[in-house]
Design a protein around this nucleic acid. Structure first.
Lengths: 119, 119
DNA sequence: TCGATACTTAGCTTCTTATCTAAGTATATC
DNA sequence: GATATACTTAGATAAGAAGCTAAGTATCGA
């Protein structure tokens, strides 16, 4: 299950804004209407709605309109690709350390076998 | 150990670009010079350097100039705040599920104790 | 039906980002 | 010392993001 090329871009970019992260933090405690969500922020509603839309485009939240109220909910698994990339990155790094370790180990064994003639 | 308000912004934003993520992936395998790093990308060097600078500003890489060559290396722990935020977010979410679970459990017990008079 | 509520759309301004080309500086190599 | 290499700086441009106000639409509640 590979993700489309730009998906990670959209996700990381969506997370790169304090307002949007705050929205997600709020939503982790349960769904809320747009107005409810917007209340803590000193921002015009259209501006705020832009953030919600961006989160929605990233697949981090889902919204549904019932009557005149739009309810926003967190999409639980949406962080997975981000975590995935981070984990991969860590694996790469640790793989490198392992190889470095191997290398040093081999080097030391060679020294122990001790021709001792190198400078 | 709390991080400055904008640190997460800068980190997430730095990661929200495919070129920059590719640079990090390459660097996980070991340090490289700017020109070396730039080779796979169809991009003018000044543009490319901009990306390296952004990664450096985010603390994700360190650079050092020796002679005319600037060597770029990964900063290992730099992802920690990102992971941290992601983990927190997950904890919040799971905390919510737990409470939901408690709630449902309590509800079912009440039913079992069965006054059965609520609608 | 009328007013209030909850968005929604449209249009504008400003700032930032991602690019580029052209030209400059500092080292290394011959 | 002349040339080549490896950045580096300095603009210029175009696109995108974040914010605003003003005005519109659709419900809800009395």
């Amino acid at each position: 299950m590979n993700l489309s090329p730009g998906q990670l871009d959209i996700l990381f970019q969506a997370l790169g804004d304090p307002t949007r992260r705050a929205i997600l933090e709020r939503l982790a405690r349960g769904p809320a209407s747009v107005t409810e969500l917007a209340a803590p922020f000193d921002m015009a509603l259209p501006s705020f709605l832009g953030h919600v839309r961006r989160l929605e485009a990233a697949g981090l939240v889902a919204t549904a309109k019932d009557g005149r109220v739009r309810t926003v909910t967190l999409v639980p698994g949406a962080f997975t690709p981000v975590r995935g990339w981070l984990d991969e990155q860590r694996a790469l790094w640790e793989g490198r350390l392992d190889r470095l370790d191997d290398y040093v180990t081999r080097l030391m064994k060679e020294r122990a076998n001790g021709s001792g003639s190198e400078d």
